[in-house]
Simulated scan of single mutants.
Amino acid sequence: VPAYGGDTTWANLVAAYEGLSEPVRRFVDGLRAEHRLGVGYQPRAGDDAYLRHLLSHQVATLHPLVRVHPETGERVLFVNGYYLERVAEVSRLESGPLLELLLGQATRPEYTVRFRWEPGDVAFWDNRATMHLAPSDTGQLAQPRVMHRVMLRGEVPLGVDGRPSEPITGPPPGTW
């Protein structure tokens, strides 16, 4: 682990959804959003090859903006600034502020936790109900952070209305 920085933050997207007002929850329950690999990726020094890889292996999917957790039945605000392109059912002009509102909600301090890694730490989280981020706070003197990550293949997300995610480009959801 680096001497400083290198933490991971998580946002509880169930709590973020529940923290929305009832009229906003009803509005977003039936909407779908286009998720596109690399949309919000901010290149860092030396990352040109990674960015080229993202753009040349484009995957886009139409996901529910609110998904239903397959085990708990909870409604989950399905947002992530690295992937959200736009809300499908509204104009681009309307989509931008709506996504800004929802991403702002998801990242409010009361819905987030920050984890300071120590050697030997292990962390588990449910990508179906959280989003995570490794903040870029190691400064100009970037130090290596070595991690081993395992991801499990999940179910195709279902919206409140029971409709599954749909591929736009790339392989169908659930096959990667």
Score class of each variant (00 low, 15 high):
V156L: 04
D48N: 08
W125S: 05
Q105G: 02
P164S: 03
G159R: 09
D126I: 10
G139T: 10
G40F: 07
T138Y: 14
E155N: 00
T169F: 00
D121K: 04
V90A: 01
Y111K: 03
V160C: 10
G159S: 09
V39H: 02
L84T: 02
L51M: 10
E74D: 15
R92K: 12
T72R: 09
T138F: 13
Y83A: 02
V122D: 04
L37I: 05
S165T: 09
E166R: 11
H57S: 11
L152S: 11
Y50L: 12
R52W: 01
A33E: 03
A129N: 06
T61A: 05
S56I: 04
T107P: 02
R36A: 06
Q58A: 14
S56D: 15
V79H: 02
V90R: 00
L84R: 01
R44N: 08
L93R: 15
E155G: 01
L93H: 12
V68N: 05
G40D: 09
Q140I: 12
V90N: 00
E118A: 14
M151C: 13
V146K: 13
M151V: 15
M147A: 15
F124W: 14
S91N: 03
L54C: 05
P109E: 15
G120S: 07
I168E: 04
N80Q: 05
S95G: 04
V113Y: 14
L158V: 11
I168S: 00
T130L: 13
A142W: 11
Q42K: 13
S56G: 13
V68G: 02
D48C: 01
V68I: 14
L98Q: 03
A45Y: 09
V150T: 15
P157W: 03
R128K: 05
V39I: 14
T130K: 03
H53R: 13
M151A: 15
P97Y: 10
R145T: 04
V150K: 13
L158N: 00
P109V: 03
D121E: 06
T107Q: 11
G73E: 13
V150Y: 13
A49Q: 11
Q140F: 12
D121N: 15
E94M: 08
Y41C: 00
E71M: 09
P135A: 08
L54D: 07
R108C: 03
G120Q: 10
V113T: 14
M131A: 10
Y83W: 10
Y50F: 15
E89Y: 06
L103Q: 13
D161G: 04
D161A: 06
G170C: 06
R149F: 09
G139M: 10
V90F: 00
L141D: 15
E94Y: 02
R86K: 14
R36L: 08
V87D: 00
E155L: 05
V79T: 10
G46V: 07
A142D: 12
V66W: 04
F78Y: 13
L133S: 10
V122M: 14
E118W: 07
G96F: 11
L102G: 03
Y111V: 04
H63D: 03
L158T: 08
T72W: 12
V156P: 00
A49T: 09
L103V: 04
D126H: 07
L102N: 06
H132K: 08
E94C: 02
R163G: 05
H63E: 07
P109T: 07
T138G: 12
A142Y: 11
D161W: 11
V160P: 05
Y50M: 07
D161N: 14
H69I: 11
E34N: 02
E166Q: 12
G46Q: 10
G162D: 12
